[in-house]
C-alpha cells in the first residue's frame, strides 16, 4: 500500500468515524488485520450492509487473507471484488434471496456463469437455489463450458430435487474423471437425471437401482 493510499484510507476512515458510518468494526478483524486494513475492510462491510448484502462472507474473505499472510492491498481487493460479486448476484437473483444463495451465486459468477443465467434459474426453480448454484459452480470449475453447465442446471431446475441435482453433479464429475469430455458428460447425465426426476415424480414409491 503506497503512502498516498495509506493517507487516503486514513482520511476516509476518519471521515467515516466522524459521521458514525463505521460504527461497529467486527472484533475478529481488529485482532487479525492491521489498523489500516481493518478500516478499509470495515468501510466495505458498511457499504455491503447498507446495500443489504451479507457481510459474513466478506469478513471470512478478509480473515482468509490474514491467515495466509496476504498483503493488505490484496486483502482489500479480494473483499471488494467479493462485495461486487455479491451485489451482482443479488441483482440477478432478486432481493428476496437468502445469504446462502447470494454467497453461492457469487461463487458461480466468479467461476464464469453469466448473471442472466442466475436470473433464469431463479425464475425456473421455486426451491432454494443454493444446491443448484453450487452444482453450477462445480460443473464450470470442473471444465464444463459455462453455457453448457447453465443449460444443464436450468433443464433440471424445474423438476429435480436438491439431492438429484447433487447426484447429477457427482455423476458428471466422475465421468469427467474417467475421461469423458466435460460438456458431453453434462449432456449425457442431464438426460438421465431428468428421466429419473420425471419418473420419480410420477411414481414416487418406485424403488431405484442402487
Amino acid at each position: 500500500m503506497t503512502t498516498v493510499h495509506r493517507v487516503a484510507t486514513l482520511a476516509l476512515a476518519a471521515a467515516l468515524l466522524a459521521t458514525g458510518v463505521a460504527r461497529a468494526q467486527d472484533p475478529r478483524l481488529l485482532h487479525r488485520l492491521d489498523s489500516t486494513t481493518t478500516v478499509a475492510v470495515g468501510a466495505l462491510l458498511d457499504s455491503a450492509r447498507t446495500a443489504g448484502l451479507p457481510v459474513e462472507p466478506l469478513v471470512q474473505r478478509a480473515l482468509e487473507g490474514a491467515a495466509k499472510h496476504a498483503e493488505p492491498d490484496r486483502i482489500v481487493a479480494a473483499v471488494r471484488r467479493l462485495a461486487g460479486e455479491l451485489g451482482v448476484a443479488k441483482a440477478a437473483l432478486g432481493h428476496e434471496s437468502s445469504p446462502a444463495e447470494l454467497d453461492a451465486g457469487a461463487s458461480a459468477l466468479r467461476a464464469g456463469v453469466r448473471p442472466e443465467d442466475l436470473t433464469l434459474l431463479r425464475q425456473r426453480r421455486t426451491q432454494s437455489l443454493t444446491v443448484a448454484l453450487a452444482a453450477l459452480t462445480d460443473l464450470v470449475v470442473g471444465g464444463v463450458p459455462p453455457d453448457s453447465a447453465a443449460s444443464a442446471v436450468l433443464a433440471l431446475a424445474a423438476r429435480a430435487r436438491d439431492d438429484q441435482i447433487a447426484d447429477f453433479r457427482r455423476a458428471v464429475e466422475r465421468d469427467i474423471a474417467l475421461g469423458a469430455t466435460p460438456a458431453a458428460a453434462a449432456a449425457v447425465r442431464v438426460d438421465a437425471t431428468l428421466h429419473e426426476a420425471t419418473n420419480a415424480a410420477a411414481n414416487p414409491n418406485t424403488p431405484r437401482k442402487p
Binding site: 462472507p57 471470512q60 474473505r61 482468509e64 487473507g65 495466509k68 496476504a70 490484496r74 486483502i75 479480494a78 471484488r81 445469504p99 446462502a100 454467497d103 453461492a104 461463487s107 466468479r110 467461476a111 432454494s128 443454493t130 453450487a134 459452480t137 462445480d138 470449475v141 470442473g142
Partner: peptide, 30 residues
C-alpha cells in the same frame, strides 16, 4: 449451517491443501 464455505486442511502439521472429493477453486491469496 447451510451455505458455501472455503477451506483447507493439513495432515500432521504439514502444508495446507484441499482433499479429494471437494471442488477446488483458485486461491486469491496464493
Amino acid at each position: 449451517a447451510a451455505g458455501t464455505y472455503r477451506f483447507s486442511i493439513r495432515i500432521d502439521g504439514g502444508a495446507w491443501f484441499v482433499p479429494a472429493g471437494v471442488t477446488k477453486v483458485p486461491d486469491e491469496f496464493g
